[in-house]
Design a protein around this nucleic acid. Structure first.
Lengths: 347, 347
DNA sequence: CGGTACCGTTGGATCGATCCAAACAATTCA
DNA sequence: TGAATTGTTTGGATCGATCCAACGGTACCG
């Protein structure tokens, strides 16, 4: 079999390039080649040029496993695949994170776990066998023990989501849900609404509580009645039932929902009652998923690309120079995307 | 610092267990320990017992990078994160695949690529630097060059999706969309429908063509009019417009859609015209996403857990014994989940 | 002119598992 | 009993990159 041209797919080259072969071609030692790659400053310019040329000519790519064996650094981050994250948000985040990590030369390795305890049990294997450099955790919640476990073990991690109880000795990135629902409320008020309800999740702590608080605060600040929220687990069927209850009990002209899925349920209920979404009752969702676009649903969009790039940046920093500085926290604002569900004329 | 108890998190143990330390404890050579793990049959029972005990006592876990350096096997599979797969299907597949691969001691590593060419360009780096053992490809389509590229390079791969043109020299797993839409059509006929339309994607080859063919075949076989399908790119807005066009042009009493997203658009249009979905016009979607559950949309559910476990099994087999046997192909049937959108009384 | 300092470079040991060939033990057969 | 056979176990080299200690060379200083 002949070499089929170039180092595009190393597997086919007659012999894959190694530090040694590059060194031989450049007429220097292996160590110098390594230095050119890892600590360019200590190498003389002219030497560096020769080595760089040799690297290019051979299409040399450092072999991770070899490096990893010596340094105990894998350049791989662990990410748990959630069964159902906040709906359709997870896969967009996944894509953005893979990109952002890749830009810093990190890769994402997936794992699953039925619950947090199982996840914690899985860490040992992922660290011992695979040398993961760190974890990106999503879906933080009150009582979350994962971060304290990891930081105690000295393993770098970032969370997408604030720590809801401990003081947060790790870096995190989050989206300010309260500001989002505050914006949504303000928008509805400016459209003339006076009875604005909230359709949330059963759990009033964590993310759900945050989104609820923004609505409640703004409604109260405007001197409007704070209608008791209705609650449902995050699927459209329960959302619809809870919306029905909310409509019957509080007679609102607008409903802000903790998620698009709940909003979908609410819209279904409103339509089923022969009313028009946006005209008789305004609805605003959260997450700006496909659902929103179809249904003409106003919704709060999370800046997932930014969340991902900050996450990658923070964990890379933590891995590369474990500093004593206080960890950085990033809180981003969602964007209100206005569609027909909150702007059609009403009354 | 003292050893904080047990090998749960190896990083903290005073010294991590290696083949050597296990061998010393068991009073055998490193090679024998390795044999116990990798080729148990050639080791005497009593020796194996001693070694196994030592492994347990030290909480030994083989270090992948070391093994990988020697064997060129990483036990890692590459998977491209699609921006938008067939909606909400991807993240469920991802979860199932991570699980299924994990059960065979493989891990999933993600990568992104804007298009197929970029993906092919990315293979080199993933193979050379990371030693990926193989790829799980999704979203196959006519003209797909990824599989031929990989098989030419001798890299194992499985596809979720049939090869739509080449003869398929690689194993694949797919869901029989035509059978699905055939079942859906039959179901509608049994509900008394005579004018059954189809709302599909612009591209009539590949997945979309398959789903369309099932509908067309069954309608024709029943001696009913084959109404010219309407087509739209896969989002609800275009789906709604295309549904409007279909309703105007062919006056159907039922519509089968190539996806739930399109079905959502269709339902929106039907409601907007003051008609009731299921009563005046039946709708059936594809993928059985959350959308279906809320909207009471009948839909074809893909058996993603099975797809994932077959995919994992097939690629693992290919990696572990690259045989000359013809590659295995698995075609699974979707399940028709019947809801109100296709059963409410009509006429 | 010898000594200290620094800079760039080098050889060799090392990470932890697996490959291979050779050594050893147990069993069979002439 | 000795030789041939089969079955287990072992030492040492190896994968490819990085760590570390030591090297020769140039510059500067007293």
């Amino acid at each position: 079999m002949t070499d089929d041209g170039g180092p595009v797919l190393g597997r086919h080259a007659s012999a894959r390039a190694t530090l040694g072969s590059v060194a031989a071609l450049a007429g220097v030692s292996k160590q110098t080649v390594s230095n050119v790659i890892n600590s360019p400053r200590i190498v003389r310019d002219e030497t560096a040029r020769r080595v760089t040329a040799a690297i290019a000519e051979l299409g040399y790519r450092p072999h991770r496993a070899a490096s990893q064996l010596r340094t105990r650094r894998s350049r791989v981050l662990g990410l748990r695949v959630q069964n159902r994250f906040t709906d359709a948000v997870f896969d967009r985040f996944l894509h953005a994170l893979t990109d952002a990590a890749g830009a810093l030369d990190y890769r994402i390795m997936l794992y699953t776990a039925p619950d947090d305890d199982a996840e914690i049990r899985a860490y040992g294997e992922l660290l011992d066998r695979w040398d993961l450099d760190g974890f990106v955790l999503t879906g933080t919640h009150p009582g979350d023990e994962r971060t304290s476990y990891l930081s105690q073990a000295g393993v770098p991690c970032v969370t997408f989501g604030r720590p809801w109880d401990d003081s947060g000795h790790h870096p995190w990135v989050d989206v300010d849900g309260a500001s989002g629902t505050r914006m949504a409320t303000q928008h509805l008020i400016s459209q003339g609404h006076r009875r604005i309800g909230f359709l949330g999740w059963p759990d009033s702590s964590g993310v759900g509580g945050d989104r609820l608080a923004g609505w409640a605060g703004q409604v109260k600040a405007a001197g409007l009645p704070v209608l008791l929220p209705s609650r449902a687990v995050n699927d459209a069927v329960h959302g619809r039932a809870a919306a029905a209850e909310l409509l019957d009990r509080t007679d609102p002209t607008a409903i802000i929902c903790a998620s698009d899925v709940l909003a979908l349920g609410a819209m279904a209920e409103i339509s089923a009652r022969g009313m028009k979404v946006g005209e008789q009752i305004a609805v605003i969702g959260f997450d700006d998923t496909d659902i929103s676009e179809v249904g003409g649903l106003s919704s709060l969009a999370q800046p997932l690309v930014e969340v991902a790039s900050h996450s990658a940046r923070l964990i890379a920093a933590l891995i590369e120079k474990p500093s004593a500085d206080p960890p950085e926290h990033v809180l981003l604002l969602p964007t209100l995307v206005i569609r027909g569900s909150s702007t059609a004329v009403h009354h």
